[in-house]
Simulated assay, not measured.
Amino acid sequence: MTEEPVEPAGWITVPDLAERLEVPVTRVHQMLRDHHLLAVRRDGVLRIPAELVAGKGVLKHLPGVLTVLFDAGYNDEEAMRWLYTKDDSLPGGTPAAALDGAAATEVKRRAQALGF
């Protein structure tokens, strides 16, 4: 992968996500603590890339990929950078975009390779 990160197409705040998922804000914070979801501070506000959320939940493979990244020593910012680094060999051009399709297992495999 090249080292050219891109910004997510959109952001969602914790309260907005809680409303969308129809759960308390504390549940979204628990999802963040459990690494089932990823957020970073932008302009002082905790924000979640909107494309990591599908309908009433997070992308199916996201928690597994995040677990692998955090086990490899990544922090939130580094995980975000990895997920949004351009990679033309993946559908959608980034690991984050590829998580929402058939290439999700390839993204997970690449994340696992980081730990070795």
Rank of each mutant, 00 (worst) to 15 (best):
E3V: 11
E4F: 10
P5D: 09
P5G: 09
V6N: 07
V6D: 10
W11P: 05
W11F: 11
W11G: 07
P15C: 05
D16M: 11
D16R: 12
L17F: 04
A18F: 00
R20K: 15
L21W: 03
V23L: 08
P24K: 09
R27E: 12
L32V: 02
L37G: 00
R41E: 11
R41H: 10
R42T: 12
G44N: 05
L46F: 06
L46Q: 10
P49Q: 04
V53P: 00
G55P: 04
P63K: 01
G64D: 14
V65T: 06
L66Q: 07
V68C: 08
D71E: 15
A72N: 06
A72D: 03
N75G: 14
N75E: 14
D76E: 15
E78C: 07
A79K: 04
R81Y: 08
W82H: 03
L83S: 02
Y84E: 02
K86I: 13
K86N: 11
D87M: 06
D88R: 14
S89V: 10
L90N: 01
G92K: 05
G93P: 01
T94I: 03
A97Q: 06
A98K: 00
A98H: 02
A98W: 00
G101R: 02
G101S: 04
A102F: 12
A103F: 07
A104Q: 04
A104E: 06
E106K: 14
K108T: 12
R110P: 03
A111L: 03
Q112K: 14
L114M: 10
L114E: 12
